[in-house]
Simulated scan of single mutants.
Amino acid sequence: MEGQLPVMLINAKQARNMPGRKTDVNDATWLAQLAAHNLLIGSFIPPEPIRQLRDLTRNRSSLVHDRTKVYQRMEKFLESSGNKISAVVSSLTGVSARNMLDAPVDGHLDPQLLANMAQGRLRQKIPDLIDALEGRFTTRHEFMMRLFLKQADGLDVMIRELDEQIEDAMTPFCEAASSISTIQGLSDTSTEVVIAEIGVDMSVLPDAAHLAPWAGVCPGPNESAGRSQSSHTRGGNSYLKAALSTAALNATRQKNTFLAARFRRLYPCRGGSRALVAIEHTILAAIWRMLSYGEVYRELGPDYYQTRNQSMA
Rank of each mutant, 00 (worst) to 15 (best):
A209L: 11
A87I: 00
S187T: 10
D106I: 00
Q306K: 13
T29W: 07
S230A: 09
L53K: 02
R298Y: 10
H37L: 10
L259N: 00
R274M: 04
I10D: 09
M8R: 14
Y293R: 15
D27F: 11
M144K: 07
P111H: 06
R16P: 02
T257K: 07
E167T: 15
P6K: 10
A286H: 09
R60D: 01
G42P: 14
A132F: 04
K125G: 02
G271F: 04
V7D: 08
P219Q: 02
E295I: 08
T182N: 14
R264H: 08
R308L: 13
V95G: 10
I287V: 15
T282M: 10
M290F: 08
Y267F: 05
M170Y: 09
Q165T: 06
R73E: 07
D207C: 15
D168P: 07
L40K: 11
K22I: 07
V204Q: 14
S230Q: 09
A103S: 07
D102P: 02
Q33R: 13
L122I: 09
P19F: 05
A118V: 02
I198M: 09
Y71H: 12
I126V: 15
A251F: 01
V204F: 13
L5M: 01
V296G: 13
I195K: 03
N59H: 08
Q119V: 10
R265S: 07
D156G: 15
G236E: 00
Y71T: 03
D153M: 05
A243W: 00
R67E: 05
D201K: 12
E48K: 15
T138H: 02
G271K: 02
F44V: 15
R54I: 05
A313F: 13
I195Q: 04
M100E: 02
N237F: 01
K241I: 00
L147H: 15
S86H: 05
N309T: 08
A251H: 01
L78G: 02
V88Q: 05
S231E: 03
L259S: 00
P6H: 08
I41E: 08
T257C: 03
A15T: 13
A15N: 12
L186A: 02
R136T: 04
G271H: 02
L129Q: 12
P221K: 12
L109I: 11
L78N: 01
V217E: 00
L162G: 01
K22L: 06
M202E: 12
Y239R: 09
T307G: 14
S86Q: 06
A248T: 00
G216M: 02
C269G: 05
A286L: 11
N237A: 01
F258T: 01
G154V: 00
L31H: 08
I126P: 08
E48Q: 14
P127R: 12
